[in-house]
C-alpha cells in the first residue's frame, strides 16, 4: 500500500505542472453549427497540457481557454485554416495531430510507404531465389542397392513399432 501511494505521489509530482485548475467553460452557444465546427476542428488539435488528448476532449484550463478563443474567432468569420495558423504560430506544428507536409516531416509521410515497397521487394526476391533453388536442385540418382536397403527398412518392423 505504501509503495502504491508513493508511486501515485511520484506521478502527481511529475504530472503536476499545474494542470488541475478547473475553469468554467463559457456556456456553449446555442449555435449548433458553430459548436459542431468547433468540435470537428478541436478534435484535430492537440492539447498541450495533457498531450495525449485532443483539445476537444480535454478539460484542462488552457484547452478550455483555447476552445473559447477558437469559438470567438469562428464568430468573427475566420476560416479553419486561419485558426490553425493562429495556433501553430504560437504553439508550433505540435498542436496539429496531422503534421503538415514539409521537408522535416517528409520522412514521416513517405517513410512507411518506402518501407512497404522495400519489404515487398525483399519478399519477392526471397521467393524468386527459393524457387530457382528448387528448380535447380537435380534429383539424386539412387542406385538399386540403396533402393533395396530402403525397402528392407520400410518392411522391417523397426524398434519403435509394436
Amino acid at each position: 500500500m505504501r509503495i502504491f501511494l508513493s508511486i501515485v505521489f511520484a506521478l502527481l509530482v511529475v504530472v503536476g505542472n499545474d494542470v488541475a485548475r478547473a475553469v468554467e467553460l463559457k456556456t456553449p452557444s446555442k449555435d449548433e453549427v458553430l459548436e459542431d465546427r468547433l468540435n470537428t476542428l478541436s478534435s484535430e488539435l492537440r492539447c498541450l497540457v495533457c498531450q495525449n488528448q485532443s483539445l476537444a476532449d480535454s478539460h484542462a484550463d488552457l484547452a478550455i481557454d483555447l476552445k473559447n478563443q477558437i469559438r470567438e474567432m469562428m464568430r468573427q468569420g475566420r476560416s479553419d485554416a486561419e485558426i490553425k495558423a493562429y495556433l501553430t504560430h504560437r504553439y508550433g506544428d505540435f498542436v496539429l495531430y496531422r503534421p503538415p507536409m514539409k521537408t522535416s516531416t517528409w520522412f514521416l509521410w513517405i517513410g512507411p510507404f518506402v518501407l512497404l515497397v522495400v519489404g515487398i521487394a525483399a519478399l519477392a526476391r526471397a521467393v524468386r531465389q527459393r524457387r530457382r533453388r528448387l528448380a535447380e536442385a537435380v534429383p539424386e540418382e539412387v542406385d538399386t542397392a540403396t533402393r533395396e536397403r530402403a525397402r528392407a527398412l520400410l518392411a522391417d518392423d523397426g524398434p519403435g513399432a509394436d
Partner: peptide, 12 residues
C-alpha cells in the same frame, strides 16, 4: 490568459 496564449504558454 490572453497574453499567455499569444506567448504560447502552456505549462507555468
Amino acid at each position: 490568459g490572453k497574453v499567455g496564449i499569444d506567448y504560447g504558454v502552456y505549462g507555468v
